[in-house]
Simulated assay, not measured.
Amino acid sequence: MAVQKVTDAEFTEQLANHPKVVVKYYADWCGSCRLFAPKFNRLSSDSRFTDITFLDVNAETSPVARKTAGVTNLPYFAVFQNGQLVEAVATSKEDALVELINKLN
């Protein structure tokens, strides 16, 4: 499934409508965030994660979504199951994100 860009207005609805969600928090000025984007897009199409919804959230323009995950640094990733935060991590390493995503399975 393709990565969906969402705002605060759509964030809560996405969590309510999808049992497994992984969120990438980014900012337009964040170079590491831009470098990680292709990896995140590739993971969203990975056959291991077909039942997981992938979201992109601009941390600067979505304060509610940012606060929900306790974003401390960028890029920041959070996994939600049934609308509840499971775990989150600030990382630029793909293997750390895969390990985080696997907590949903």
Rank of each mutant, 00 (worst) to 15 (best):
Met1Glu: 10
Met1Arg: 11
Gln4Ala: 14
Val6His: 04
Asp8Leu: 12
Glu10Tyr: 13
Phe11Pro: 03
Glu13Cys: 04
Gln14Met: 14
Ala16Met: 07
Ala16Arg: 10
Val22Glu: 02
Lys24Ile: 00
Asp28His: 09
Trp29Gly: 06
Ser32Trp: 06
Ser32Pro: 15
Cys33Asn: 04
Arg34Gly: 08
Phe36Arg: 02
Phe40Trp: 11
Asn41Leu: 12
Leu43Gly: 08
Asp46Cys: 08
Arg48Asp: 15
Phe49Met: 13
Leu55Glu: 08
Val57Gln: 09
Val57Trp: 06
Val57Ala: 10
Asn58Tyr: 12
Thr61Glu: 15
Val64Pro: 00
Arg66Met: 15
Ala69Glu: 02
Gly70Arg: 09
Gly70Thr: 11
Val71Tyr: 02
Pro75Tyr: 00
Tyr76Met: 03
Tyr76His: 13
Phe77Ala: 02
Ala78Glu: 01
Phe80Trp: 04
Gln81Asn: 13
Gln81Val: 06
Gly83Thr: 06
Gln84Ala: 13
Ala88Asn: 08
Val89Tyr: 04
Val89Ser: 04
Ala90His: 03
Ala90Asn: 09
Thr91Tyr: 05
Glu94Gly: 05
Ala96Pro: 02
Ala96Ile: 06
Leu97Glu: 03
Leu97Gln: 00
Leu97Ile: 13
Val98Ser: 01
Glu99His: 11
Glu99Gln: 14
Leu100Asp: 00
Asn102Gly: 13
Lys103Ser: 05
Lys103Thr: 09
Leu104Thr: 01
Leu104Arg: 01
Asn105Gln: 12
